[in-house]
Design a protein around this nucleic acid. Sequence first.
DNA 1: AGTATTACACTTACGCCGTAAGTAAGTCAA
DNA 2: TTGACTTACTTACGGCGTAAGTGTAATACT
Lengths: 226, 226
Amino acid sequence: MAVKTQETPPKRTPLSRERVLRAAIALADERGAEELTMRKLAKELGVEAMSLYNHVANKTDLLDGMVDIVFSEIDPPAAGGDWKAELRKRAASTRAALNRHHWAIGEMEGRTTHGPNNLHLHNAVLGCLRAAGFSIEMTVRAMSVQDAYIYGFALQQSDMTPETPEDFAAEAQRQMVDYAEALSDYPHLIEVVGGYVAQAGYDYDREFLFGLDVILDRLEQLLSQS
Amino acid sequence: MAVKTQETPPKRTPLSRERVLRAAIALADERGAEELTMRKLAKELGVEAMSLYNHVANKTDLLDGMVDIVFSEIDPPAAGGDWKAELRKRAASTRAALNRHHWAIGEMEGRTTHGPNNLHLHNAVLGCLRAAGFSIEMTVRAMSVQDAYIYGFALQQSDMTPETPEDFAAEAQRQMVDYAEALSDYPHLIEVVGGYVAQAGYDYDREFLFGLDVILDRLEQLLSQS
DNA sequence: AGTATTACACTTACGCCGTAAGTAAGTCAA
DNA sequence: TTGACTTACTTACGGCGTAAGTGTAATACT
């Protein structure tokens, strides 16, 4: 007697904004920003594309949410301690977050809305600088130069996919061959890229910290002579 | 006697890669990168979309060509003169070029192929630093930190559309209202953005040069003590 | 318990996009 | 003249974001 057979009730866990955003980040992390489409994201969640619109207003709202989650992964600096160490820590964790989510650097550009985690982080950076003794004017400048460097470095790194110094050296050697004829006009590229980087490689972590300390050390000088 | 009336022979000047690239840049400059599509570009040139493919291989080839033209607009630094002045000049002209073509900063990310103008410029920067007396290792680092800062600054600026200090102040005031309730948790944002930037505004040129000199001055110190 | 409301996933459809493939019209060398 | 080449045109395909409407299961309220 065919009662309504409870044939494997789909039993899908319901969607939520959180689940949608997390899945979107995972997809973008794995396959890149241009592979993140509403249809593919829906398929990943076992759902049709239009269902996503019950939880995000549209695609830019989706990206806004994703970006703010990335901001939440950054360690805000503490105010009142060793300000250089605190800012080094936040710079490193920013770089780490942008590295984990290499699509984020491209998506943060041109975005006009700032999520709460973004505001929280920047409030903390300003507070750290103010506590260190910088004037308001210098605080603005100090944050601006650091942010520009941090995001710019991440941007440059995303141009060169190889991660390790060895990979980088190999890539440099390959490009030296590719551009061989043109390169003969560029002796300094040969000397530096061909003669040095292709041998020694390029340690992103070390170079990043070097540049950061160029900035922080000079800021410290300006602070002490003010 | 209906001879073949030479009824207004279309007389269109033929396309060329140069013309396509220039038109693409003009379109992207005016309407943004996301408005640059093959169809709209073709319409601008009075042609059908597919005709463009006789002059560019595909859309990324088009963008490669556009990006290299932007590089051609940057003044390469001279080697052997006042190296800080030369590098300040190239930084300013880079910023100016990225400002004229605000889409470029987004399109240079992740690009793996480097056009001749890109190579030429970077060869000149390396040459300038080597002539100033930097070791090969320090030359790599010095270029890296400058580039990161320059591109990062342009990236940040593209987040905030207003150009003039006054516009910036007005925008800051508007955002203070938008985020009023959340902002109460962020006293330093209130102090700095609300209390200072919203009043004094933000002079991009001045702030850019300040940050650049933070870097160049510290590099000079490291050079003289080596 | 029965009914009304809401929440949420589904289907369909529209106008875009980049571009593969094939066609037609002009130019120029032999 | 002819035939190869260049270059613009037409058509078509699959994928995109998303507007609009439909069906259904859970929840809230008599």
